[in-house]
Nucleic acid binder design. Structure first.
Lengths: 225, 225
DNA sequence: TTTGATATTACTATTCCCGTAAATTTAATT
DNA sequence: AATTAAATTTACGGGAATAGTAATATCAAA
């Protein structure tokens, strides 16, 4: 893992670098906010350890800066300021965890692990959309629900993808025809109804919780119900 | 947000439920590990607050169980056991954060926010109108008041949206018929009265503070009164 | 060219919404 | 209090919106 430490006190920095380098981590070090910002914005780290009181730019400001650029990078604030007020300022700036000095090194390790575990877990390796227990594989162009594998034609796929990307919102037939069929005027067609019907047979018919719902006079909405 | 609290001490549980229910959170409570497991495995929560020392099944065991099923659900351990050893056991079981009692409620809130922030990052921001405690969801085309979910037809929705966007102003029936029904001349219709009546039944009838008010000879106005 | 698969249109039965009209209640005015 | 106007409420018929199916057109592959 790649770790960035922003810490001005050389002794503490050395202690951290020493301790972390041991366990298959690559550690980089910045001694002030300026340096920290440069490194953090240029490189991608698995986690950033941030001292609050550092020269040039405060840890809180740096935290905001990093979170506005790469919000997914976990930030662990590491500081002697231990009041609840201080912690709130840190969390408000976007910090993911806040550890008060002095701390036991083992606890730091555990918290780093917990934070990176979540971050890594969240990366979706597969190219899929999920709504309830319905899964759409964008690569294979297949849908799955329960233990059923659902084959889709091109138009069926487009419509289902549209619904899944816009779950929880009502769309009128006109909206749908525009976005999925690229027709920019009302042709008096009923393709949407027909395809909704086909999709329902495929993804809803055999299951108790329905995903495609009609809102009379308004349109269709996808949601678990 | 949907929160599960697993805590056997009723006083602490009440304190947490009280504090969290305030800020648009739905809170459920389990008094022992068994109950906690049932709820956690059956439902999907945005975060689970877990006491370590609870009857039947320990918090650590429960944590492992939950993480083996739904690893993406964040778990915040909440306990009086404050040694580093205890924390390590918690983190090893898969906890995402560990807070030692006693703590300030604000810090708990901040940590809950930090843990759920990442998961909620992808959710689209809510598109809603508010008047008093009445909420109109423009995406779902639904209204909410108290804990009631109010379904609306197309015309009901249009009229309610008109009232909510123009709260605090009196509009004559003619104004309303023009803006909501697109009728540009007086047809002697009483649609407005009829639909106001329908809306009142849906959004005002069961609540002490009314939102739609009649100004005799002038028209209608929406405001909290 | 033929065949099968997919896309689109046409049509019918059904459901549900909308707006009218009439009855009832409430408010304003003399 | 009586009268009149305004507002509320209910009931109902017409008609639009929708589901579902069948028929036709289009496209792709062999």
């Amino acid at each position: 893992m790649k770790i960035l430490i922003v810490e001005d006190e050389q002794k503490i920095a050395d202690f951290l670098i020493e301790g972390l380098s041991g366990q298959e981590h690559t550690v980089e070090h910045a001694a002030d906010g300026q340096q920290g910002a440069q490194l953090a914005l240029k490189n991608k780290y698995d986690i950033i350890l941030l001292d609050v009181i550092i020269p040039v730019m405060s840890g809180v400001e740096l935290c905001k800066l990093i979170k506005s650029n790469t919000p997914e990078t976990p930030i662990l604030m590491l500081t002697a300021l231990g009041t609840t007020e201080d912690k709130l300022i840190g969390f408000d700036a976007g910090a993911d965890d806040y550890l008060v000095k002095p701390f036991e090194f083992k606890e730091l390790l555990a918290r780093i692990k917990a934070l990176t575990r979540r971050a890594h877990h969240h990366e979706t390796p597969k190219n899929t959309l999920h709504v309830s227990d319905l899964i759409l594989d964008l690569d294979k162009k297949l849908a799955y629900r329960g233990d059923k594998i659902i084959e889709l034609t091109a138009k069926e796929f487009s419509l289902l993808e549209f619904f899944m990307r816009n779950k929880g919102k009502v769309y009128s037939r006109l909206d749908i025809v525009e976005k999925v069929w690229d027709l920019n005027f009302d042709t008096g067609t009923n393709i949407v109804e027909v395809y909704v019907n086909i999709l329902r047979k495929k993804i809803d018919k055999d299951f108790p919780t329905k995903l495609i719902h009609t809102r009379v006079g308004l349109g269709y909405i996808m949601e678990e119900r």
